[in-house]
């Protein structure tokens, strides 16, 4: 049977190889930042590909970005920003041992992530309909012969980002279950903080994707 704190939270035991709860937390955070640093480098390969093709075919990029809906991209940007805010609020609520608020803010974050994916699905469906697909699957029309390259980049960049959103949604569901069990309180909220950092990174990548794909022509 797990020990409970006087407020009814599940008491967190610091792993034996750490000196203190704070050391444990800072270590986890350092590891998370290393992972995020790696994530940035991982995405940078696709951004460099974008840069190279944009340099080679500037006119094609201007034509291609007119196929994307700025309104949809804008909506998704706002939705992700709000979800980042609610995620930050969820962490804060855990810091002050407010179980109910932690749960509600995590739930709003999950709903925002779901909305993002729905909008993304609508955009993808429209691209599929017009044959605006990557590489040899492309069967759309255009004035540029290399138009399919843009959609190769578009689907790789937004697809990889979308996978990150889906993984984030899975992690938030895991957090919701643990929150419900009363595992997060002022003395222990490491998983909430780490998923939060990951979620902000997903937001950060989208901050660059939105202008580069939807706006710059």
């Amino acid at each position: 049977m797990k020990q409970l704190t006087k407020d009814g939270f599940v008491k967190h035991e610091v792993a034996h190889h750490f000196e203190s709860a704070d050391q444990e937390f800072q270590t986890a955070k350092l590891g998370m930042w290393l992972f995020l640093g790696q994530e940035l480098l991982f995405f940078s390969a696709l951004f460099v590909a974008y840069g190279v093709f944009r340099f080679l075919y500037p006119a094609m990029f201007i034509e291609a970005h007119h196929h994307l809906s700025v309104n949809m991209g804008f909506l998704n940007t706002i939705v992700l920003l709000i979800s980042s805010f609610t995620m930050a609020m969820a962490i804060r609520s855990a810091q002050v041992s407010n179980k109910k608020h932690t749960f509600v803010f995590l739930l709003i974050t999950l709903v925002c992530a779901g909305m993002f994916m729905v909008v993304k699905y609508m955009e993808y469906a429209e691209k599929f309909h017009h044959g605006l697909l990557p590489a040899r699957w492309f069967f759309g029309e255009g004035t540029s012969e290399v138009l399919h390259i843009f959609f190769g980049l578009y689907f790789c960049l937004t697809g990889l980002h979308g996978i990150h959103v889906l993984i984030g949604m899975g992690l938030i569901i895991w957090l919701l279950i643990k929150t419900q069990r009363g595992e997060f309180y002022s003395e222990y909220y490491t998983p909430v903080e780490m998923v939060g950092l990951y979620w902000h990174l997903v937001d950060l990548v989208w901050i660059f994707l939105f202008p580069l794909l939807y706006l710059v022509g």
């Binding site: 590489a135 492309f138 759309g140 029309e141 255009g142 540029s144």
Partner: peptide, 9 residues
Amino acid sequence: SPVKIIGDG
């Protein structure tokens, strides 16, 4: 290229 060219391109 798999692109169907339209217009004078």
